[in-house]
Write a protein that binds this DNA or RNA. Structure first.
Lengths: 169, 169
DNA sequence: GTTCCTGCAAAAGATTTGCAGTGAC
DNA sequence: GTCACTGCAAATCTTTTGCAGGAAC
């Protein structure tokens, strides 16, 4: 088991070790996404590119509001509507994964099927979100998917509990 | 662009085999829940009881709107606010599980840790939600949880894809 | 009788949509 | 030059909150 810690308040900020081993990936996620959008007939506007680049850097999922304010902090302002529009386009072509882990907020992150693929731990008390990976779990999921009556496109696992900081406090 | 809304009402209808083997459960979930609420100091109002009974009958998760309209159809009207308040109380004492599975809608279902425990399949196209169980997956989850740095309270697995009806159509 | 539960209506957010100007091709 | 992309403001929808009357204890 390989858990990445996050110092931050809500989302995780730790760079992922996996990001280094890109041998099997021809290009970064943002380039793949830009290509996918181009193939689907979209033009390359400024807002869209800024959002793609931001998402590509994130180790874990962000909300639409976080995406907008983070871009704003970098002097690359983008309207909220554009954030939602780009999220919808990306999800449509399967490059984005929604992560819905409570309080009605939706988070978004690049859908990575190879290195970078992970699941989430959520603290019930502080709401912190952390990524984790577990190879045994992946094997079990693959086996389970084989016997399911649908053509599986993706899976998502969320584990909830009191994180170490909260349960000791 | 005219985006077709997923049928929403389309929750799962399959009766669960597990519902029959209740030998280890002393009482129904709604009775346990009523007891839990009483222990936590809540009184037994009419709206609360109606909601508990409805939830107990459901094979899978419902949205707040569905809960309200289903009760309405049974001539047991309850305000939307009460639905949300009861959901919050039940979640607080761990008897209710939120199922957040897309399009910003939140669904709720009884949290069953023994028989009745299940996970979800979601069809990307028609939005249908179906329960499934897999013992190998449960074992893998238990093993994974043992090594996690948080006191685990629950887990949730969502598998997405095109269901058999949609992929053949 | 006191305190909690409910429904109603208003409020608060998040997300979506209509429209007009600007930018990509 | 055309059509897509973007921002703005308004609209929509879900969920939360304030308050007053009624119910549980």
């Amino acid at each position: 088991m390989d858990v990445q810690r996050s110092p931050g308040v809500d989302a995780c900020h730790t760079p992922r070790i996996d990001d280094v081993e890109l041998s099997s990936q021809p290009s970064s996620w943002s380039e793949q996404a830009a290509q996918g959008l181009a193939d689907a007939g979209y033009r390359r506007g400024g807002a869209r590119r800024a959002i793609l680049e931001l998402l590509d850097e994130q180790p874990c999922a962000l909300t639409a509001v976080e995406i907008q304010s983070e871009l704003c902090a970098r002097n690359r302002e983008v309207s909220r509507a554009s954030v939602y529009r780009v999220m919808e386009e990306l999800e449509e072509i399967g490059l984005l994964q929604r992560v819905e882990v409570g309080r009605g907020l939706v988070r978004y992150e690049p859908a990575r099927h190879g290195p970078g693929h992970h699941h989430h731990l959520v603290c019930d008390r502080c709401g912190r979100l952390e990524p984790f990976t577990d190879e045994g779990l992946e094997r079990a999921i693959r086996r389970a998917c084989e016997r399911l009556p649908l053509r599986v496109s993706e899976h998502e696992i969320v584990i909830r509990g009191a994180c170490s900081a909260c349960s000791s406090a």
